[in-house]
Computed example of a mutant assay.
Amino acid sequence: MSQKAPTAEEALHTTLDMSFEDAVPFVQLEHELADFETVKVTRLDRMISGMLGEEVSQTALLVVCHPTIARDAIEIDQELAGMLPCTTAVYEKEDDDLVHVHHFSATKAIRDLGCCPGDDDIEELIEFTGERMTEVWENIETHS
């Protein structure tokens, strides 16, 4: 049975009533408390401004990786390492005063793009990833 790619409505999304500068390390810490290691925090708005001389809304990418997810993905197929790590976006919108936090599942993308063998291992990995990210999201919403 073929799967369809997740829609924006199926992604994890929440809003925070705090400054952008406070939100980025807060969201990073909540990932780390759920055993995700921070690989990199990138400020897209600064990159775009510095390289293109254009201004965009404040936007950061939190690139994180969970050791169990990484291990299980490469045990399925080492090429899947190219689909890791997970990324969460923290951004502002011009039409509201909130900070948005948004995450699409990398493991669902692996499945939906047909990047893995057709077996149950990827479904188990998607389930485990979902459990870990659910913990992150619940903590973000509880502690914000």
Rank of each mutant, 00 (worst) to 15 (best):
M18Q: 06
M133S: 07
D120H: 12
F36D: 08
E138A: 12
I76F: 00
I48C: 00
A23R: 10
M51Y: 07
V99D: 08
S19R: 13
I69E: 02
C116S: 13
G53K: 02
Q28W: 01
G82P: 07
G50D: 15
T134I: 03
D35Q: 10
D35A: 09
G114M: 10
E9I: 07
E10F: 08
L44K: 01
T107K: 09
I126Q: 09
T87P: 00
M51E: 14
F36M: 09
E94T: 13
S2E: 14
T142P: 02
H31C: 08
Q28D: 08
F128E: 14
S19K: 14
R43W: 04
C116R: 03
T38P: 03
T7E: 11
E141V: 07
R132D: 06
P117N: 09
L125V: 07
T142G: 06
V136M: 10
L52N: 11
K40Q: 14
L125A: 04
E30C: 14
I74N: 06
T15G: 04
M51A: 13
S105E: 01
L125T: 07
Y91K: 05
F20D: 08
K40M: 15
V63K: 03
P6L: 11
Y91C: 04
I140R: 01
K93E: 12
E54P: 01
E55C: 00
D22Y: 11
V63Q: 04
D77V: 04
D96I: 03
A23I: 07
E30W: 04
P85H: 06
L80S: 01
I110T: 01
C65I: 03
V90G: 01
L16P: 02
L61I: 02
E135R: 05
A73D: 07
V39A: 00
D97P: 02
N139I: 01
V27T: 01
R71M: 13
S19T: 15
T142K: 15
E141F: 02
Y91D: 02
D17C: 05
D119Q: 05
L113G: 12
I122Y: 04
D97I: 05
D120I: 10
S49M: 11
F20L: 09
A81P: 07
L29K: 15
D72V: 00
T134L: 11
H103I: 09
T14W: 02
I69T: 05
E79V: 06
T129H: 12
D17I: 07
P6N: 12
N139E: 15
E135N: 06
E10W: 09
F104E: 05
S105D: 05
H100M: 11
E75K: 11
V39N: 03
G130I: 08
M133A: 06
I126Y: 08
T87G: 00
A23E: 07
S144K: 12
L84Y: 05
H13M: 10
H100S: 13
D72Y: 00
S19M: 08
W137D: 08
G114R: 12
R43V: 05
D121T: 09
M47V: 13
L113I: 07
E124Y: 13
D72Q: 15
A8G: 09
Q28C: 08
F104Q: 07
L125K: 05
T59C: 11
S2R: 14
N139D: 15
H103K: 09
A70Y: 04
E79R: 14
V63M: 09
L62A: 04
